[in-house]
Write a protein that binds this DNA or RNA. Structure first.
Lengths: 112, 112
DNA sequence: TTGATATTTCCATATTTCTAAAAATATCAA
DNA sequence: TTGATATTTTTAGAAATATGGAAATATCAA
């Protein structure tokens, strides 16, 4: 991964409203949530929300699809995965003992 | 995890020099690296590096120890782990099928 | 002491980011 | 068409962040 891509993604979620939006969408699942519902849930003016959604989308962390007048936003799980992998790259230097991080170190059966 | 803590950590690494520093230290291991060596490696003026190291330290992502005139900085693996866990919290909504992220979903035998 | 090394703190300037009102766009239903 | 709904784009000022030189601090060795 290019470092500039990682910085974009991290900048996108390094802001309270956007981190809330992102986590909400990660938990909401693949089907996504209408922009209006996000605005209501986080109590944000439409234009402010739209600005933040755009930042997240530009960073590749969200996708959206239109259904009539409604735009459904959803988290891009692959991007999140790549970002996390980039952060943790080589954290164990080949030594398992360094890697009792509970999240890092992908088990073999999960690797693609 | 408090969202403000997560935002601090993400803001700290959402900047190219700091992300380079952090990844370098993650890969360098628990023993850490002298500030001077980091400055040389990343070709940064001492004061600029010091500013960035402080941001990372304030965010809880680095620790440092002094050894005579030298300050050794090292990555805080636990913070990184907690941050990643926070991002991915509930990403599967209980359904394994959503979680073919190669990194997420901690295998039972790795949980503390 | 003194001088050298390693690093941080202070400071001013330059740049980026955040916010939300107002205006614009897209879509639908009558 | 027209009016209503859902959302984005534009805009501009306020706030936050990045940069690096100069000065300050901490430590060591002679």
């Amino acid at each position: 991964m290019e470092i500039s891509i990682a910085v974009s993604a991290l900048s996108a979620i390094a802001q309270e409203s956007r981190l809330e939006i992102f986590r909400y969408l990660v938990q909401a699942g693949k089907n996504g949530v209408p922009a209006g519902k996000i605005a209501e849930r986080l109590d944000l003016p439409a234009s402010t929300l739209s600005f933040h959604l755009n930042q997240l989308k530009q960073a590749g962390l969200l996708t959206c699809r239109r259904e009539s007048r409604t735009l459904f936003y959803s988290a891009n799980y692959d991007s999140m995965n790549d970002l996390v992998a980039y952060l943790m790259e080589n954290c164990c230097q080949g030594q398992e003992e360094n890697c009792d991080l509970s999240i890092a170190c992908v088990p073999e059966e999960k690797k693609k």
